[in-house]
């Protein structure tokens, strides 16, 4: 039985797809059979971030409609063993993701994989709901910024009331906070919400912090999950996050402001 993890946020552009790609890649690099699914029907992007856009022949909707089987639609990552991608459809309408179709596909994937990572679309419409509906755990991706935090709160409300687990009264979806685009220098100056601030408001456990970093754009430019740049800050942060998810104890990195010349000079 695979564990189903939704990567969600409510707000767009906060790093859901980047996080989905790197989290799934990280799990696979740790030896777990992992599939990452793009739920953003009509606006697929996961394939680009993963660098397999030219290998998409069949997609999620084809599988749901029975036009292709999973074997045909799953794209195996060429760099990382154990990692597969199921792309979203580019053209179909949003209603293509039926609850039965999604469930059938997830059940089938569950036989073969250890982890199923669902990359949610932005918003709180059907697509986002379907991405979280069958989830066991959720990564709530949040930027240290007011609109993102508020939207994350909305999404947490949905996770606790609109998911299959909540409707059936089972153990609730396990929620994890993932803070991205964190700039410790600005936090130090009081210009940006701190991890504690966000934690106070959202009140869910923190899984990881990804610093604002040039490496993220560089990685997506070249179609490579940023986690593959393990030595860089963002990649390292994602690898730490995966380790914590797997139950290891890893202290937070990249959360302290770099000291300036004068700070060091004055022993601050």
């Amino acid at each position: 039985m695979a564990k189903i993890i939704v990567v969600t946020s409510g707000k767009g552009g906060v790093g859901k797809t980047t996080t989905s790609a790197s989290f799934a890649a990280g799990l696979a690099m740790r030896g777990h059979k992992t599939v990452v699914i793009d739920f953003d029907v009509g606006l697929r992007n996961l394939d680009l971030i993963m660098g397999c856009e030219r290998r998409v022949v069949f997609d999620f909707v084809n599988v749901i409609n029975g036009e292709a089987n999973l074997k045909q639609a799953l794209i195996r990552d060429k760099r990382i063993d154990n990692l597969s991608i199921l792309a979203a459809s580019q053209t179909r309408d949003k209603d293509a993701l039926s609850e039965e179709g999604v469930e059938r596909t997830l059940n089938k994937l569950s036989e073969e994989f250890d982890y199923i990572v669902c990359d949610s679309p932005a918003g709180i419409e059907k697509g986002a709901l379907m991405a979280m509906y069958f989830a066991d755990e959720a990564l709530v991706v949040t930027n240290p910024e007011v609109s993102s935090v508020r939207d994350s709160d909305r999404v947490l409300g949905m996770l606790s009331s609109k998911t299959k687990r909540s409707i059936e009264g089972r153990e609730p979806v396990k929620e994890h906070l993932v803070v991205t685009r964190y700039a410790p220098n600005r936090v130090g100056k009081g210009e940006m919400l701190s991890l504690d601030d966000i934690g106070d408001i959202l009140a869910i456990p923190l899984l990881g912090v990804v610093p604002e970093s040039e490496t993220v754009l560089n990685a997506s430019n070249s179609g490579m999950p940023v986690v593959l740049e393990n030595n860089a800050d963002a990649g390292g942060a994602y690898m730490d996050m995966v380790a914590r998810f797997l139950g290891e104890d890893r202290p937070l990195r990249f959360t302290q402001a770099k000291k300036g010349f004068f700070d060091r000079l004055m022993g601050r």
């Binding site: 935090v149 508020r150 100056k189 009081g190 701190s194 106070d200």
Partner: peptide
């Protein structure tokens, strides 16, 4: 110093459920 604090205070008011 005010801007992050203001962000938090404003959020605490709007994030009023759950």
């Amino acid at each position: 110093k005010g801007s992050a604090r203001m962000a938090k205070e404003r959020l605490q008011v709007v994030v009023a459920h759950r």
